[in-house]
Computed example of a mutant assay.
Amino acid sequence: MKRLLTLGLIAGLSVGLMSTSAFAALKEGDKAPVFNLEASLAGKPFNFSLAESLKKGPVVVYFYPSAYTGGCNIQAHTFSVNSEKFAAAGATVIGVSLDSIERLNDFSADPEYCAGKFAVGSDVGGKVARSFELNVREAAEGKVDSRGKAIEHGFAERTTFIITPDGKIAATIGGVTPAENVKAALEKVQQLVKAG
């Protein structure tokens, strides 16, 4: 019984910590920081501009720890299979991590993950993640990705921002599983279409 209570307490603390991570980030109603990043779409690098993308409609900016890692693979795949639903709602999706553009060229084209359906941006050093008030951890020695390649960059916390064309944050989503994160983002974007 004591062990079950301890496990329950640990699980409760974990959930509490996961849900508070999103509270450190910029919140609904805040002005989103404008940024430009080197990005990749279907393995081809280009310059992503948040300001230019907002001219077309809402933008889903999702920060994730690292390409080719468990939860990030699930999240990228889930965004990929739902890309037409986001497009139907007029939304642009961009994933942002501290990965190098070379790693992202592979990840963005990988048919198992991004599959060329949306862009991923390279925030080497974490400047953009920090501008959204996200926690950025330094690289940890000995970490390898799902391909067995060394991960030599830091990690931003997994948080998604829905940004409306006026540059305001309509929703901040964090503290949920990668698949739930995508589902919540899609629901919010679809609500914006209905309200608009």
Rank of each mutant, 00 (worst) to 15 (best):
A129S: 08
A109K: 03
I94Q: 07
L98W: 03
K188D: 04
V34D: 15
K149E: 15
S146N: 15
A39N: 14
A24W: 11
E102Y: 06
V193G: 06
Y64C: 08
A32V: 12
D106N: 07
F86N: 06
E133A: 05
A139L: 00
Y64Q: 06
D110Q: 00
G71K: 00
K31G: 12
K168G: 10
S21Q: 14
C72G: 03
V93F: 08
K27V: 15
H77N: 13
S83N: 04
F23K: 12
L192Q: 11
S131C: 02
S146H: 09
P111F: 04
G175L: 01
K31C: 12
G154R: 08
A139I: 01
A140G: 09
L54N: 13
F107N: 04
H153G: 09
F86S: 06
K31A: 15
G121R: 03
P58Y: 13
K85W: 04
A91S: 12
T164K: 08
P58D: 11
I74F: 06
R147G: 12
L7Q: 14
G95A: 07
I162G: 03
Y64S: 03
S131G: 04
V193F: 08
D30W: 13
D106C: 01
L41E: 13
K44Q: 14
L104H: 03
G71E: 00
M1V: 01
E133Q: 09
V144G: 07
G174F: 01
V120F: 05
A171M: 00
A195L: 06
F79S: 01
K149N: 15
L54K: 11
A51C: 11
N73I: 09
E133W: 02
F46Q: 08
D110N: 06
N181L: 01
L104G: 01
A170M: 00
A115K: 12
F107S: 02
E102T: 07
N73T: 12
V15T: 11
V176Q: 02
L186E: 09
M1Q: 04
V93E: 06
